[in-house]
Design a protein around this nucleic acid. Structure first.
Length: 259
DNA sequence: ATGGCGGCTCGCAGCCGA
């Protein structure tokens, strides 16, 4: 069994000790990070290389930023969405042992009446086109990250309260279905899951302890990978303890995929 | 209860996140 995982770390500067601790304990084959909030010149490269992992990253000041850590060599690195000029660093793709990995930090969207929401929908249009193109080139494809979309009401702690708001609105969910329509599967839904499993909880008002969360971090896999996928879980422990990110780690377990 | 927390910034309050 080996693991492919995704984690919105909400600042790699702050979360580096927790990331190092987590990879030492879990030894994932691949870990995709979002919201590193770290310029490339400040990326903690040596600390990560010392773990034996290789890493590619695309960051910027203050916001956004993505990285891919891998125990195996990282090849064919690509930054951004083709045909969508964007200063915001939200997309990083790489090939690991013939498996194409696309790390997405989908825009938040703020609220449906905001310019940021329009940016999110436009971004998602180009993301779907990109995944379609990549899938044609790489049958073994994993698209993972912070999608900032709760695909269904069962991914929302209180669907009535959240109805129509950002992260759950119809157009956002339609875009998510557009990704699945390319032939990708939500790895989490390949398996029986208990109710009310989420990947993000607000820092405020004790949301985590009341399990007021959303499932917005996802691992999508192509048909060629479905038969080797053995599990998909969310590590709630990563939301506990000292200085946690507001997102937990999502992990897909595979066999017969990467050596 | 639109706050609440936490991270960011040439900060000392305001932004953004989700």
């Amino acid at each position: 069994m080996f693991k492919i995982a995704t984690w919105n770390v909400n600042s790699l500067k702050v979360r580096l000790p927790r990331v190092l601790e987590w990879i030492d304990k879990n030894k994932p084959a691949v870990l995709a990070l979002q919201e590193t909030k770290t310029q490339d010149k400040d990326f903690p490269l040596s600390a990560i290389l010392e773990t034996g992992y290789q890493v590619s990253y695309a960051g910027q000041k203050t916001f956004n930023g993505v990285a891919i850590l891998s125990r195996h060599s990282i090849e064919e690195v690509s930054v951004g969405l083709p045909g969508f000029a964007d200063e915001q660093q939200r997309v990083l793709a790489a090939t690991v042992d013939g498996v194409r990995i696309i790390d997405f930090y989908v825009p938040n969207g703020q609220s449906p009446d905001s310019d940021k929401y329009q940016y999110k929908l436009k971004w998602l249009e180009h993301a779907v086109a990109y995944v379609r193109q990549q899938l044609a080139l790489y049958p073994k494809l994993v698209v993972l990250g912070d999608f900032n979309i709760a695909p269904e009401d069962r991914d929302v702690h209180d669907p009535i309260k959240w109805e129509g708001s950002v992260l759950v609105s119809g157009p956002e969910r339609a875009a998510f279905q557009g990704l699945l329509g390319l032939g990708l599967k939500d790895a989490f839904r390949l398996f029986d899951q208990p109710p009310a499993v989420f990947s993000w909880w607000d820092y405020r008002a004790g949301a985590f302890h009341r399990n007021f969360g959303l499932r917005i971090d996802h691992i999508l896999i192509s048909e060629a990978l479905v038969s080797s996928c053995r599990s998909c879980t969310i590590d709630r422990d990563t939301r506990k303890g000292t200085q946690p990110s507001d997102h937990a780690v999502v992990i897909a377990g595979f066999n017969d995929l990467i050596a």
